[in-house]
Design a binder for these strands. Structure first.
Length: 436
RNA sequence: GCGGGUGUAGCUCAGUAGGUUAGAGCACUGGAUUGUGGUUCCAGGGGUCGCGGGUUCGAAUCCCGUCAUCCGCCCCA
């Protein structure tokens, strides 16, 4: 029989394992901590959680991200299902959320609508550090609000979230990419300018000149730098509405104490942005993965998928990138502050009593491991030490006969006999007095 | 899609003038200590050296192919 190839995870789609089983950066403890902190933070701003399916009709992303965008043209996982429908795994979050908003009429009544998500995104690109085929985005969207303070608040929520994690060198870049009303005029001027230098542009930029000229501004090719630097700037072409909006965003950012840098060449990879576009970078990361979050306004998106005209602004960030940023600065996320204990018993006579006591301790908010099988006390103690718990609750036959158990505190090594009913309080008290 | 690096134990890695049964540290299991952890000591389990083919008396080592993986570019979060 032929040797079976070892089954392993798909390239670029990684398992996230508990600490001690995998690399320090992506372990499930920091993963869940970051996700929990994000949820708490955005719920504090009145956002509510939405979850949309991983698979959507391919048409959705073609209509929103734009068929010429890199993401849709070459990075989507697309396939046909048994019924011949073309499905795609979501490459980004906003399109799905907008689809759900339209489908369920979430924008039909009431005032603004604030939604957030924590969701895996999929892009068939070459994996490397900080870039994966499956990554997890922290995102949010504000619908039905045209006011620039909404843009500013979205930016501020992300910025202050990162700062509260303890990250330094977090920088915000903003730009206005105009609206369908004023962008065409700029675009014309830009194309005319770029055509003058076409023969000196990189191959990619010449291609984008045809498909999506504003992306040329985003080129990293050294040979394009000089040309891009001399290109017309969109700020000079914004109409009254866009200019006023942009000014409003900046004023609100000032009020929210979000430092920012204006970058007139900032253009996002998705075609649907209007007015505000922004990126958040971390200075202790290198290259393209410096960008740990980005977003902007996409007022036309809901209309593009058949809904009523609906304003929208939001951002997407990345758990992976944030964890890399934290790691680059030696920051550990706070873990739940609970006392941890392990039960010990050395024969089956007290096993069931220990099991019942473990349950009672958990009900009291103590994290308790139960060893399932009796072994020598030495083994029980070794196991408890290895598990990293502070307390061991020893349910021995002798003490149990008197209605007592032994509480061992590894922190200091004291061991005290006490009535069964007092153990939970004793553990909680010791923990409160000197949290490990 | 393009360029480079690396594949030896669960993990991190030694191991080439080709040469007995392939090593270390950590981790794991048992014992010293059958009612008391950490430190220490002793013992043990675990590898078709990524896979396939070739050269050779002999291949982890040399050659070819292949797969996997990491890093960088493009692009993104």
């Amino acid at each position: 029989m032929a040797k079976q190839a070892t089954l392993q995870a798909i390239r670029g789609m990684d398992d996230v394992l508990p600490q001690g089983y995998s690399g320090e950066v992506y372990n499930s403890a920091s993963w869940t901590a970051l996700r929990r902190l994000y949820c708490e933070w955005v719920e504090l701003h009145g956002f509510r959680y939405v979850e949309t399916p991983v698979l959507e009709s391919t048409e959705l992303f073609k209509r929103t991200a734009g068929e010429t965008s890199d993401i849709v043209s070459k990075e989507m996982y697309t396939f046909e299902d048994a019924g011949g429908r073309s499905l795609s795994m979501r490459p980004e979050g906003s399109a799905s959320v907008c689809r759900a908003v339209v489908q369920h009429g979430l924008a039909a009544s009431g005032g603004d609508l604030r939604l957030y998500y924590v969701a895996q995104m999929f892009r068939a690109e070459r994996p490397q550090k900080g870039r994966y085929r499956q990554h997890t985005q922290l995102g949010l969207e504000i619908f039905k609000e045209a006011d620039p303070t909404a843009d500013a608040e979205a930016i501020a929520i992300l910025f202050h979230f990162l700062r509260r994690l303890g990250l330094k060198q977090v920088a915000v870049q903003i730009n206005s990419v105009g609206s369908p009303a004023c962008r065409p005029a700029y675009r014309e001027k830009l194309v005319a300018y770029l055509r003058q230098h076409e023969e000196k542009l990189s191959e990619d930029s010449r291609r984008r000149l045809e498909t999506n000229p504003m992306r040329v501004l985003d080129s990293k090719a050294p040979q394009d730098a000089g040309i891009v630097a001399g290109a017309p700037v969109i700020a000079d072409f914004l109409d009254e509405e866009c200019a006023a909006h942009y000014a409003g965003v900046k004023a609100a950012l000032d009020a929210l104490e979000v430092p920012y840098e204006e970058n007139p060449r900032l253009v996002r990879g998705l075609d649907y942005y209007s007015k505000t576009a922004f990126e958040v970078t971390c200075g202790t990361l290198e290259g393209a993965i410096k960008v740990i979050g980005g977003g902007g306004r996409f007022d036309g998106l809901i209309e593009q998928i058949g809904g009523p005209p609906t304003e929208a602004v939001g951002f997407g960030s990345s758990i992976e990138r944030i964890l890399l940023a934290l790691e680059s600065q030696g920051i550990a996320l706070p873990q739940p502050d609970r006392p941890k204990a392990r039960m010990a018993f050395f024969d089956d006579s007290t096993k069931i009593e220990a099991l019942k006591l473990a349950r009672a301790l958990r009900e009291a908010g103590i994290e308790v491991e139960f060893p399932y099988r009796s072994r020598s006390l030495t083994k029980m103690m070794q196991a408890a030490n290895k598990a990293g718990v502070r307390f061991v609750v020893i349910v021995g036959g002798e003490e149990w006969g008197r209605g007592e158990v032994l509480l061992k505190d590894f922190d200091g090594g004291s061991q005290t006999a006490m009535a069964v009913g007092n153990v939970a309080a004793a553990i909680l008290d010791s923990h409160r007095r000197s949290p490990a």
